[in-house]
Design a protein around this nucleic acid. Structure first.
Lengths: 127, 127
DNA sequence: TTTTATTGTTTACAACCGTAAACTTAGACT
DNA sequence: AGTCTAAGTTTACGGTTGTAAACAATAAAA
């Protein structure tokens, strides 16, 4: 019903951890992000809080530690971000997007072949 | 040298006009955007001003009217936006991006074939 | 049970963005 | 030349985001 809440870039760093392994305790989240992102623990706590407020995560306390779970899935997140980008930049025209990226980015032989297979399959499945 | 300045979404509406036709007078820009975007002229003036400050456009006055020119090209803009999106969302892995979009979006037979041709060509050109 | 440490909540603050009113200036018209 | 007016400039203001300090609550240790 309600579309996935907007997750900012900084917040997404927290989500990425939870998408990898769920649940995680606050300690785990903070310790993993603290060095990698050079954030103070207060900062990370803010993100946890905001994510909770916007219902992107939930937590339950089991005795002494709190366990965090994602409520928004990685797929929902990527999908929403993709859609939004596609609309903003290409007016929804996927073909355009592909063309532009192909023009700009280099692909390895392997990647190209993989994409060709995907396209073949897509054609077979119709749509 | 210096990377293209960051152009926000609202600002990009102004740029789009200038990328279509250059130069444009303030009157033209304002009148075209006013209805389409439901913005007051003051709002549009703000965008012109901000774009000018960040050197995304320039203007010269010929008599009583000001003529606006883009300084950032459409290609630079798209390229920067693409790069940034690719890095943020896919850690720079184009293959991933393509796969995700293919998975989510429907393509017409025609579009698929067009992409296949692009890939073929890409393969021939190497990289 | 009182203290302490941990972990969640409130408050803060500057930069950025969308939105726009107020101000200023320099030609156009009378 | 004086006034009007169009077009650029300054200021404003609420919401979001990155960043974090201050505060509160609660379980663990003494």
């Amino acid at each position: 019903m309600n579309s996935t809440p907007h997750i900012t870039e900084a917040e997404s760093e927290v989500m990425k951890l939870l998408w990898q392994k769920e649940p995680l305790t606050a300690v785990e989240i903070i310790s993993q992000l603290k060095d990698r992102m050079d954030w103070s623990d207060q900062t990370i706590k803010t993100f946890l809080n905001r994510l909770h407020k916007k219902q992107a995560i939930r937590f339950e306390k089991s005795g002494r530690n709190y366990l965090y779970y994602p409520l928004v899935t990685y797929d929902e997140y990527v999908k929403a971000a993709n859609r939004s980008f596609l609309d903003r930049m290409y007016n929804g025209a996927v073909g355009m997007l592909f063309a532009k990226f192909l023009e700009e980015e280099k692909l390895s032989e392997g990647e190209i072949e993989q994409l060709q297979q995907l396209l073949e399959q897509k054609k077979r499945d119709g749509s």
